[in-house]
Design a protein around this nucleic acid. Structure first.
Lengths: 240, 240
DNA sequence: TTCACTTATGGTTTATTTGACCACAAGTAT
DNA sequence: ATACTTGTGGTCAAATAAACCATAAGTGAA
């Protein structure tokens, strides 16, 4: 096993810690802002690919599970824990990484941008949100991983109520609909959407309304954690 | 990179070939026989776990993609190529493998048992089909991988027409229904099933009937490759 | 041959869901 | 006041799903 320099999170000191030398993790972190789906990319600060953009990622330590590694990397990156995170799959074309055979395990995260500060605990030289349409050419096979994630996201939101992880705690039905429209690339009918989503009893109507909008304020909703979990396990159908 | 003894498929000679030393592949191979869902397990012929059952698997070679590795292993095992195979995900608990840190990538295969001969090209000391209900305690975390696959299979057959890969080329609607019932663990209505599946235009009615059955012979169907592929991409809905 | 039994096949009926569309409410901006 | 935007609650016809029924077509046993 290789030994890599790693910065210890608590002490801030550079320590040596063994890592697995042919497997990495790369995370596709989705956010949603002003009607647009976005992805968090980082600019590499060292090595031959200095200056190029890629997915945030890192090495797996010798004694941690891969899920833990993904959570740790994400926490270092965003300062957030307990966010929605799931493994995508492994990417292992033999020439995907130019300096040797490295297989990477892709992870897929959905975060509420309101809770998040790019700078918090951030170690890469630069990090930036990119709209899906503006993704540049990325290092290695990261464009492939991103494309796969996007495809996965589109499938996932139709089968489980995971899209909510991209919205603030309290949201309007219109915002929710716009989220689905953006992710799935379709147009929906306000009225039918409302009927369908309310019928699942997934949402709790709050005694609050939108503030500071230049039109009639809409009621705010949040989702019911119990039913959310039940539907997440059982699967729900969200075709339009 | 480690060097492992590998038996060359063409020549039959033992050759040395470099493999990645901390990643393996394990395959969950499903078959369907007489109304029961089954899984192919192998008995390990060497090492400390000699005699115990596990999933068929192996090492990834230095210069092959992980998908290729899975296809190669499966071809060695079953003598079949171009079978339905997809990656599940990586399994990486730090202590899943007792002799060191090894991450495994799970694969998921569906085969037509009629086409398949367990002995063909088989290298493990023994291989056997097990009914889902009779799965023994397996080595390492293979029971977890199997449980995950089963869950995945249940989700998959409801979203894409992949279940057909378990049936012979020609099948009756009743057989197809029994397949769904077995996989999903539900009872269905013959008449409604028939209506629903025929409405998708996925099946082609053949000019042939069942033979040697002790009741009215049913029409045979096969599926339409074109529509099959379209539905596989697009996703179909098969809730009951 | 007749009858019981099994599965095949094609209905019906009713309730539910969808999709398209409408109308008015309740705010803001000019 | 009026235009404009989004919210909210409807209608209606078409499509779908769920439960159930009836008859057909075969086998094998009485």
């Amino acid at each position: 096993m290789k030994v890599k320099k790693i910065i210890d999170k608590e002490s801030g000191k550079v320590i040596e810690r063994s890592v697995m030398n042919s497997i990495t993790i790369d995370c596709v972190i989705f956010g949603f802002d002003k009607g647009s789906l976005e992805v968090l990319l980082v600019q590499h600060g060292e090595g031959i690919r200095k200056g190029e953009w890629g997915l945030p990622g890192g090495w797996i330590r010798e004694r941690e599970s891969i899920d833990n590694a993904a959570h740790r990397l994400l926490a270092d990156l965003t300062g957030l824990d307990s966010i929605y995170l799931e493994q995508l799959k492994a990417f292992g074309e033999p020439d995907r990484f130019p300096l040797g055979r490295v297989i990477t395990i892709g992870y897929f995260a959905l975060i509420k941008k309101e809770d998040y500060d790019v700078r918090a605990g951030f170690t890469a030289s630069d990090a930036k949100w990119y709209k899906i349409a503006d993704i540049p050419k990325l290092i290695y096979d990261h464009n492939d991983i991103l494309d796969y994630s996007l495809e996965h996201l589109r499938n996932r939101v139709r089968q489980a109520p995971v899209g909510f992880n991209l919205l603030p705690e309290k949201f309007t039905l219109f915002e929710l609909m716009k989220l689905y429209e953006e992710i799935l690339g379709v147009e929906m009918d306000k009225s039918n959407f409302r009927r369908k989503i309310l019928r699942m009893k997934l949402l709790v109507e709050l005694d609050e309304k939108q503030k500071d909008v230049s039109h009639r304020a809409a009621k705010l909703y949040e989702f019911d954690q119990k039913i959310y979990e039940k539907l997440t396990k059982k699967g729900f159908n969200f075709e339009f």
